[in-house]
């Protein structure tokens, strides 16, 4: 029982990270029908920026650990968001009316470019987060040992997702984003500035992805320049699993994949850990071809 709880909390922690990254894929896809293959690298950028700030400025020493982490997260999210918006301008906007797959190849090129840029800046070896600056106690929650850092990460990902849900479903601009996701041309006719919507999703999505990268650094301590491929692929799978283009679907898909992976590698086989996500995906798509929450057909005829 204790083992199961432990695995469930581990799964939810990873799942929250998958969900945050998946939101970036799904929001961009919803509005532009584009798979942003460079999103995984924006996530890695977040992890590396966190490393840079933690090693060069002593946040925690000046403003206390919690406020320091908050400030750190804001800085990382802001910088990754700006990078995301620049990426859209350089690699995707010129291709907005081109055949859809051209933008996919441009995205793959951007992904290779960013990955190698990070390697050149930070080196090919893993970088380790300085743990003396971080809270490292553990607390007991419902009978399971949970490190404070992991609890903070779960709480932060839940808070970010709640904020995003409120923004998308309860504000005027969120309504505009959902309208543009349903039909870009009709939204434009209704007076929505679609370019602003695109800019917004390329700020919000990367910001969440960057936050997820920072969280991985804070929880696991190690960051490497190739980490974006794995997390990005899992998160993209999560977005499809939940129904691509659907914001609550990405959250559900991410959490579900995290739990499935944790339980699967604990009780079935560690060696097959990376295959579980895809096996679950294929099984779900056989029953629901547009994902768990994807009701409308995302593909235009």
């Amino acid at each position: 029982m204790e083992e199961l709880l432990q695995q469930l909390t581990n799964g939810l922690a990873v799942g929250g990270i998958y969900a945050l990254v998946a939101l970036g894929y799904t929001m961009v896809y919803g509005v532009l029908r584009l798979i942003n293959f460079a999103h995984g690298e924006l996530f890695t950028l977040g992890a590396y920026l966190g490393f840079t700030f933690l090693t060069s400025f002593a946040f925690a020493g000046r403003v206390g650990p919690i406020a320091g982490l908050g400030l750190l997260a804001l800085l990382v999210m802001g910088l990754v968001a700006v990078t995301g918006a620049l990426l859209e301008r350089a690699a995707y906007r010129p291709l907005r009316d081109a055949p859809r797959l051209s933008a996919v190849v441009s995205a793959l090129g951007a992904s290779i470019f960013l990955q190698n840029a990070l390697m050149l800046v930070y080196g090919a070896r893993f970088q380790v987060y300085p743990d003396e600056a971080l809270p490292n106690r553990a607390v007991r929650l419902f009978g399971a040992q949970v490190p404070v850092m992991r609890a903070l990460v779960v709480a932060a990902s839940a808070a970010l997702m709640a904020a995003l849900w409120l923004f998308v479903h309860r504000t005027r601009f969120g309504t505009a984003i959902r309208a543009a996701a349903i039909d870009r041309d009709a939204a434009r006719l209704a007076g929505i500035d679609v370019d602003r919507v695109v800019l917004a999703v390329f700020l919000i999505g990367p910001a969440l992805g960057g936050a997820a990268g920072l969280m991985v650094g804070l929880t696991y301590g190690q960051v490497g320049f190739t980490m974006g491929w794995g997390y990005g692929m899992k998160a993209f799978t999560a977005a499809i699993l939940g129904g691509i283009g659907n914001v609550p679907g990405a959250m559900l898909g991410g959490l579900l994949l995290g739990v499935v992976e944790a339980l699967g590698s604990a009780y079935l086989s560690t060696a097959w850990k990376d295959a579980f996500a895809f096996i679950v995906l294929i099984a779900v798509l056989l029953v629901r071809p547009t994902g768990l929450l994807g009701e409308r057909i995302a593909e235009k005829a």
Binding site: A90, L95, A98, S102, F113, Q115
Partner: peptide, 18 residues
């Protein structure tokens, strides 16, 4: 590989249909 990624992006942007 940095230059390769950049070249892939530029070629696609310049010739979207291949």
């Amino acid at each position: 590989m940095l230059v390769f990624g950049l070249a892939l992006m530029v070629m696609m942007v310049v010739r979207p249909r291949g």
